[in-house]
Computed example of a mutant assay.
Amino acid sequence: MGADGQLFSQLIQPVGEGPEHQGLGGGGAIALPVQHDDMPTELIDELAQRLAKDPLATLDVTLLMPTLGKVQVRASPRQGHWGIELGFTRRDVLRRLRPRQRNCEAALAAALGQPVTLSMLDEAER
Protein backbone atom coordinates (compact mmCIF):
# COMPACT_ATOMS: atom_id res chain seq x y z
CA MET A 1 0.00 0.00 0.00
CA GLY A 2 1.32 3.44 -0.85
CA ALA A 3 1.84 6.33 1.54
CA ASP A 4 -1.53 7.90 0.67
CA GLY A 5 -3.39 4.66 1.34
CA GLN A 6 -1.62 4.09 4.65
CA LEU A 7 -2.31 7.60 5.85
CA PHE A 8 -5.94 7.40 4.75
CA SER A 9 -6.29 4.08 6.57
CA GLN A 10 -4.84 5.52 9.77
CA LEU A 11 -7.12 8.54 9.67
CA ILE A 12 -10.38 6.59 9.34
CA GLN A 13 -9.47 3.45 11.27
CA PRO A 14 -11.82 3.01 14.25
CA VAL A 15 -10.29 3.20 17.72
CA GLY A 16 -9.20 -0.20 18.98
CA GLU A 17 -8.14 -1.57 15.63
CA GLY A 18 -4.51 -1.93 14.80
CA PRO A 19 -2.15 -3.50 12.31
CA GLU A 20 -3.14 -6.97 13.46
CA HIS A 21 -6.55 -6.47 11.85
CA GLN A 22 -7.07 -7.25 8.19
CA GLY A 23 -8.33 -3.83 7.19
CA LEU A 24 -11.19 -1.42 7.40
CA GLY A 25 -13.58 -3.60 5.48
CA GLY A 26 -12.73 -6.72 7.47
CA GLY A 27 -11.20 -8.43 4.45
CA GLY A 28 -8.56 -8.05 1.83
CA ALA A 29 -8.15 -5.21 -0.58
CA ILE A 30 -10.80 -4.50 -3.17
CA ALA A 31 -9.60 -5.20 -6.69
CA LEU A 32 -10.05 -2.15 -8.86
CA PRO A 33 -10.92 -2.79 -12.51
CA VAL A 34 -9.11 0.33 -13.74
CA GLN A 35 -5.45 0.95 -12.98
CA HIS A 36 -3.64 4.07 -14.15
CA ASP A 37 -0.53 5.84 -12.92
CA ASP A 38 -2.44 9.09 -12.34
CA MET A 39 -5.37 7.46 -10.50
CA PRO A 40 -5.29 7.67 -6.71
CA THR A 41 -5.91 3.92 -6.38
CA GLU A 42 -4.97 3.74 -2.70
CA LEU A 43 -7.43 6.52 -1.90
CA ILE A 44 -10.16 4.85 -3.96
CA ASP A 45 -9.50 1.44 -2.41
CA GLU A 46 -9.58 2.72 1.17
CA LEU A 47 -12.62 4.90 0.52
CA ALA A 48 -14.50 1.98 -1.04
CA GLN A 49 -13.66 -0.28 1.92
CA ARG A 50 -14.85 2.35 4.43
CA LEU A 51 -18.12 3.01 2.57
CA ALA A 52 -18.81 -0.69 2.08
CA LYS A 53 -18.33 -1.26 5.82
CA ASP A 54 -21.25 1.03 6.73
CA PRO A 55 -23.34 1.59 3.58
CA LEU A 56 -25.88 3.84 5.34
CA ALA A 57 -23.35 6.22 6.90
CA THR A 58 -22.39 9.64 5.64
CA LEU A 59 -18.65 10.30 5.54
CA ASP A 60 -17.21 13.82 5.84
CA VAL A 61 -13.47 13.90 6.52
CA THR A 62 -10.47 16.04 5.66
CA LEU A 63 -7.35 14.11 4.72
CA LEU A 64 -3.77 15.32 4.56
CA MET A 65 -2.13 13.03 2.04
CA PRO A 66 1.58 13.10 1.12
CA THR A 67 1.16 13.19 -2.66
CA LEU A 68 -2.37 14.59 -3.00
CA GLY A 69 -2.23 17.30 -0.34
CA LYS A 70 -5.37 18.22 1.58
CA VAL A 71 -8.42 16.31 0.32
CA GLN A 72 -11.95 16.91 1.59
CA VAL A 73 -14.05 13.75 1.25
CA ARG A 74 -17.82 13.94 1.42
CA ALA A 75 -19.78 10.77 0.70
CA SER A 76 -23.43 10.00 1.28
CA PRO A 77 -25.77 7.22 0.25
CA ARG A 78 -28.60 8.30 -2.00
CA GLN A 79 -31.48 6.38 -3.53
CA GLY A 80 -29.71 3.47 -5.19
CA HIS A 81 -26.31 5.13 -5.54
CA TRP A 82 -23.52 6.96 -3.74
CA GLY A 83 -22.81 10.66 -4.08
CA ILE A 84 -19.11 11.31 -3.49
CA GLU A 85 -17.25 14.63 -3.59
CA LEU A 86 -13.48 14.88 -3.50
CA GLY A 87 -12.27 18.42 -2.88
CA PHE A 88 -8.61 19.16 -3.59
CA THR A 89 -6.77 22.23 -2.29
CA ARG A 90 -3.86 21.66 -4.66
CA ARG A 91 -4.95 22.76 -8.11
CA ASP A 92 -2.14 20.81 -9.80
CA VAL A 93 -3.54 17.58 -8.31
CA LEU A 94 -7.07 18.48 -9.40
CA ARG A 95 -5.88 19.23 -12.96
CA ARG A 96 -4.02 15.90 -13.05
CA LEU A 97 -6.95 13.84 -11.72
CA ARG A 98 -9.95 15.52 -13.33
CA PRO A 99 -9.39 13.78 -16.72
CA ARG A 100 -9.48 10.47 -14.76
CA GLN A 101 -12.76 11.29 -13.01
CA ARG A 102 -14.84 8.77 -14.98
CA ASN A 103 -12.26 6.04 -14.35
CA CYS A 104 -12.29 6.81 -10.62
CA GLU A 105 -16.09 6.83 -10.63
CA ALA A 106 -16.19 3.45 -12.40
CA ALA A 107 -13.63 1.96 -9.99
CA LEU A 108 -15.65 3.12 -6.96
CA ALA A 109 -18.91 1.84 -8.48
CA ALA A 110 -17.36 -1.57 -9.15
CA ALA A 111 -15.91 -1.75 -5.63
CA LEU A 112 -19.16 -0.68 -3.94
CA GLY A 113 -21.45 -2.71 -6.18
CA GLN A 114 -23.71 0.25 -6.97
CA PRO A 115 -23.60 3.37 -9.11
CA VAL A 116 -21.50 6.34 -7.96
CA THR A 117 -21.78 9.99 -8.85
CA LEU A 118 -18.31 11.44 -8.31
CA SER A 119 -17.44 15.13 -8.24
CA MET A 120 -13.93 16.56 -8.05
CA LEU A 121 -13.87 20.09 -6.69
CA ASP A 122 -11.42 22.91 -6.23
CA GLU A 123 -11.37 23.45 -2.45
CA ALA A 124 -9.01 26.40 -2.85
CA GLU A 125 -11.99 28.40 -4.17
CA ARG A 126 -14.15 27.70 -1.11
Rank of each mutant, 00 (worst) to 15 (best):
L63Y: 14
E85G: 10
G80P: 06
L118Y: 01
A31R: 13
P40I: 03
E20L: 15
L63P: 04
G87W: 06
L86P: 01
Q114N: 03
G16A: 08
Q101E: 09
D38I: 02
G113W: 05
T62D: 15
K53I: 08
V73Q: 11
C104E: 04
R50M: 12
Q22F: 12
L97R: 02
G26R: 14
V34W: 12
D37G: 09
D54W: 06
G18F: 08
S9G: 06
S119P: 00
V116H: 01
L68Q: 09
E42V: 01
S9Q: 10
L118Q: 01
P19Y: 13
G27C: 12
A75W: 14
L43I: 04
A109Y: 02
E20T: 11
D4Q: 13
D60F: 04
L108N: 02
R90P: 00
R98L: 13
G83D: 13
K70A: 11
G87R: 00
G26D: 09
W82K: 00
M39E: 09
Q35A: 15
L94E: 14
P40Q: 03
G27R: 14
M65H: 05
R95E: 10
A48E: 02
D60S: 08
T117R: 06
Q22V: 15
L118I: 02
I12G: 02
R95Q: 11
